[in-house]
C-alpha cells in the first residue's frame, strides 16, 4: 500500500457486491412469486390460529444455495407485555 492510497477514493467493488445481494434476494423471491405468496398466506393463517401476529411482520423468502433452495420464514411475535402496552 502506498501513501497515495490513503487519499484515494473508497473502492467501488464492495458497494457493487452489496447492491447485488439486496437486489437478487428480492428478484429470486419474486421469480417464484406465486409459490411464495401462497405459502405466506397459509403460514400466516396457521400461526394466527395460535398467536396474534401482524401480517406485515411475517416475511417469507426463497433463497438459493448450491444444492438446495432455502425457504426462509421470519415471524415477529410481540411479547405479551408489549401487547398490553400497545
Amino acid at each position: 500500500m502506498s501513501i497515495f492510497s490513503l487519499f484515494r477514493k473508497k473502492t467501488s467493488a464492495p458497494l457493487a457486491r452489496e447492491r447485488l445481494q439486496v437486489l437478487l434476494a428480492h428478484e429470486r423471491a419474486s421469480a417464484g412469486s406465486d409459490l411464495v405468496a401462497v405459502l405466506r398466506e397459509e403460514i400466516l393463517a396457521v400461526i394466527a390460529k395460535h398467536v396474534q401476529v401482524d401480517a406485515d411482520r411475517v416475511q417469507v423468502t426463497m433463497d438459493r444455495d448450491e444444492h438446495v433452495s432455502v425457504l426462509e420464514i421470519e415471524v415477529e411475535i410481540p411479547l405479551p407485555s408489549a401487547m398490553k402496552a400497545a
Partner: peptide, 20 residues
C-alpha cells in the same frame, strides 16, 4: 482492476451465484 478494488472479486461472484 481487481487489485484496485474496482471489480467484483471472484469470491463475491461465487458467493452471490452459488454455483461452482
Amino acid at each position: 482492476r481487481a487489485e484496485r478494488g474496482d471489480m467484483l472479486k471472484v469470491d463475491d461472484v461465487l458467493e452471490i451465484l452459488s454455483i461452482p
